[in-house]
């Protein structure tokens, strides 16, 4: 069984890290590549870059980001945001990215997942799902989650998150990056009921995302949420914890993590 992974996530806009970081030892804390190299040194297992650039120069900026990252960072990394076609994916994979992540483009045209898997292999294809807990239908009924797009503002009519994850995996997704929009930004911990529902339903690895505030939350996502990996942003970016500290906490919980660097 592969070791459980800790994956820092960097939001990038126009080639710059969106949320400011307060690392004092970085020359340029807004440079995603410098931040990525630091996470590599600290023991991060992979990295995810989510590009939120809204302009049409987007593809050039993510290709450039992939190229610069591949030059400096020697762990696998995923690029998401702006991947709408096989040719978009080809461009960032050629530039050195290991995987691409697709979200709204796959919802708009699910066959995109099949196409990406056929051309590049499932190991290159991550399907990101933003989910929000549905209003309880009736007391005592099982919880369910709806798929959202547009930063959690818009529900996709009739899309159940567990069903969509299953469909994505069948179409060829190699991993599911699952974000709880209810927990994202709260620091209250991952939504492990959601993580478990998806992780138990699909045969591919699930990356839990949204809500990490303390290091114990990471272990909980693995143990209670059955996730294979944890995605973290702010708890690392603001220097509250290091990746090494996260790994130590997970190891104390009996989770097998990569511990040599």
């Amino acid at each position: 069984m592969a070791l459980k992974r800790v994956i820092p996530c960097l939001d990038v806009e126009g080639g710059r890290v969106v949320k400011g970081t307060n690392f004092v030892d970085l020359r340029d804390a807004g440079d995603p590549v410098e931040l990525a190299a630091r996470y590599d040194r600290e023991g991060a297992d992979e990295l995810v870059f989510l590009d939120i650039t809204a302009s049409h120069e987007r593809r050039e900026t993510i290709v450039e980001l992939a190229r610069r990252t591949a030059d400096d960072v020697f762990i696998p990394f995923t690029i998401g945001g702006g991947i709408r076609s096989v040719s978009d994916a080809q461009a960032v994979l050629d530039a050195g990215a290991d995987k691409v992540s697709v979200n709204s483009a796959a919802l708009a045209r699910p066959k995109l997942i099949d196409e990406l898997a056929a051309v590049f292999g499932s190991q290159c294809v991550v399907v990101a799902i933003d989910a929000r807990r549905a209003e309880a239908a009736a007391a005592g009924s099982e919880p369910s989650w709806e798929v959202f797009v547009d930063g959690g503002r818009q529900a996709i009519e009739g899309r159940d998150a567990v069903a969509w994850a299953l469909e994505a995996a069948v179409r060829g997704a190699g991993e599911i990056l699952l974000t709880s929009m209810d927990r994202d930004g709260t620091a209250d911990g991952y939504e492990n009921e959601l993580n478990r529902a998806v992780a138990d339903a699909v045969a591919v690895p699930v990356i839990a995302s949204g809500g990490a505030g303390r290091l114990e939350h990471l272990s909980e996502a693995i143990v209670e949420g059955h996730a294979d990996a944890v995605l973290c942003a702010s708890i690392f970016h603001y220097g509250r914890y290091t990746v090494a500290e996260a790994k130590a906490t997970m190891r104390e919980s009996g989770i097998a993590v990569r511990d040599w660097s």
Binding site: M1, A2, L3, R5, D45, G121, G174, P205
Partner: peptide
């Protein structure tokens, strides 16, 4: 019972 391709960090 295990996923193929084998992907990830392994000792």
């Amino acid at each position: 019972g295990l996923k193929i391709p084998h992907m990830g960090w392994e000792r």
